[in-house]
Computed example of a mutant assay.
Amino acid sequence: MFTRIVTSALFAGAAAGLIAALLQLYFVQPVLLHAELYETGALVHFGGDAVSAHQDVGGIDPLRDGLSVLFTMLVYTGYALILVAAMAFAENRGHVVTARNGIIWGIAGFAIVHFAPGFTLAPEVPGVAAADVYDRQIWWFATVATAALAVWLIAFGRNWLAWAAAVVLLLAPHVIGAPEPDQFTGPVPTELGALFAARAFGIGAVAWILTGLFAGHFWRREADREA
């Protein structure tokens, strides 16, 4: 069982992470590099001459891009390990896991890791005002943990009490609120921040759906081999 979990997760995470990394390099990295020009003062949003919204943010940096690809693959391999372990637990309770319903698992993963915390603490570009990073990390981990438990209760709960508890768990972190800075200031145009958040969510959704799809596929393939 352990070998099956690790093998499925490695293949699924590496494949989904590679695709996610390539999408990030094409769609997200140019936005980050553009934002860094405002963060460093190379461009000025207010109080200076008007600048083009279509900036040349430089060429390819092989080392930086390579490390970004490797890191993303490692991250999604870690996500895949958690996802496949949950799939194994569910299958032991009588639920059949396939590539097709693995997509649902992937959507759930996106909702837990990206959408739930991002609903209040949105992805941020460099240079924007932000609260203390330690406080934000605590809130993020707490939100992901409560969202994971809530999704599990929604999927496998057997009565209205479990589903009501799930709703409370989903809402609680946002009712409490994420840590916020004293003032919302920063040199980066809000348009760049909005574009970054939208693309981060979009690529996160694609990556998690692929993770679920690949995890379900490899999990079922390994099961058929063992049969």
Rank of each mutant, 00 (worst) to 15 (best):
residue 123 P to M: 04
residue 124 E to N: 08
residue 68 S to V: 10
residue 172 A to H: 06
residue 69 V to S: 03
residue 199 R to V: 15
residue 1 M to H: 14
residue 103 I to G: 01
residue 74 L to Y: 11
residue 163 W to G: 13
residue 178 A to V: 04
residue 209 I to A: 08
residue 134 Y to P: 00
residue 4 R to Q: 14
residue 33 L to D: 13
residue 44 V to H: 13
residue 105 W to R: 01
residue 70 L to E: 13
residue 115 F to C: 03
residue 118 G to I: 09
residue 198 A to Y: 12
residue 62 P to A: 08
residue 63 L to F: 12
residue 117 P to V: 05
residue 54 H to P: 07
residue 93 R to Q: 11
residue 129 A to L: 00
residue 46 F to I: 14
residue 82 I to Q: 05
residue 90 A to G: 10
residue 212 G to T: 13
residue 185 T to G: 00
residue 108 A to E: 05
residue 190 T to A: 11
residue 189 P to H: 07
residue 34 H to I: 05
residue 104 I to R: 01
residue 102 G to S: 06
residue 21 A to W: 07
residue 192 L to V: 12
residue 13 G to N: 06
residue 117 P to Q: 01
residue 197 A to Y: 02
residue 227 A to I: 12
residue 20 A to V: 05
residue 215 A to D: 05
residue 131 A to G: 07
residue 208 W to N: 08
residue 49 D to A: 10
residue 58 G to S: 02
residue 191 E to P: 07
residue 70 L to T: 14
residue 38 Y to L: 08
residue 152 W to V: 14
residue 149 L to N: 06
residue 215 A to S: 11
residue 180 E to V: 14
residue 110 F to H: 01
residue 32 L to A: 09
residue 34 H to L: 07
residue 23 L to R: 11
residue 21 A to E: 02
residue 109 G to T: 10
residue 54 H to T: 15
residue 68 S to H: 10
residue 197 A to F: 06
residue 68 S to N: 12
residue 187 P to Q: 13
residue 18 L to P: 07
residue 169 L to A: 06
residue 2 F to I: 15
residue 44 V to N: 14
residue 125 V to A: 01
residue 123 P to H: 04
residue 66 G to W: 03
residue 150 A to S: 04
residue 50 A to H: 03
residue 106 G to K: 07
residue 61 D to N: 10
residue 187 P to I: 12
residue 90 A to Q: 05
residue 29 Q to S: 08
residue 172 A to M: 07
residue 187 P to C: 05
residue 222 E to M: 15
residue 134 Y to A: 00
residue 212 G to D: 06
residue 18 L to Q: 06
residue 216 G to Q: 03
residue 153 L to P: 11
residue 92 N to D: 15
residue 32 L to M: 13
residue 198 A to S: 13
residue 170 L to Q: 02
residue 100 R to A: 15
residue 16 A to R: 00
residue 115 F to M: 05
residue 55 Q to R: 08
residue 96 V to F: 08
residue 217 H to Q: 08
residue 122 A to N: 10
residue 203 I to C: 03
residue 149 L to W: 06
residue 117 P to K: 00
residue 40 T to I: 09
residue 73 M to Y: 07
residue 50 A to G: 10
residue 134 Y to Q: 00
residue 184 F to Q: 14
residue 124 E to F: 01
residue 156 F to M: 04
residue 182 D to Q: 12
residue 23 L to H: 08
residue 41 G to R: 00
residue 130 A to L: 09
residue 76 Y to K: 00
residue 207 A to K: 02
residue 6 V to N: 00
residue 22 L to S: 09
residue 111 A to M: 10
residue 181 P to H: 02
residue 194 A to P: 04
residue 46 F to C: 11
residue 26 Y to H: 15
residue 61 D to C: 03
residue 212 G to K: 05
residue 120 T to M: 01
residue 2 F to V: 15
residue 135 D to M: 05
residue 55 Q to W: 02
residue 20 A to Y: 04
residue 159 N to A: 11
residue 78 G to P: 09
residue 188 V to A: 08
residue 79 Y to H: 11
residue 164 A to W: 12
residue 107 I to K: 00
residue 218 F to V: 06
residue 50 A to Y: 07
residue 161 L to C: 12
residue 216 G to H: 04
residue 199 R to M: 10
residue 108 A to N: 05
residue 95 H to W: 12
residue 159 N to F: 06
residue 67 L to E: 12
residue 41 G to A: 04
residue 183 Q to D: 13
residue 96 V to C: 08
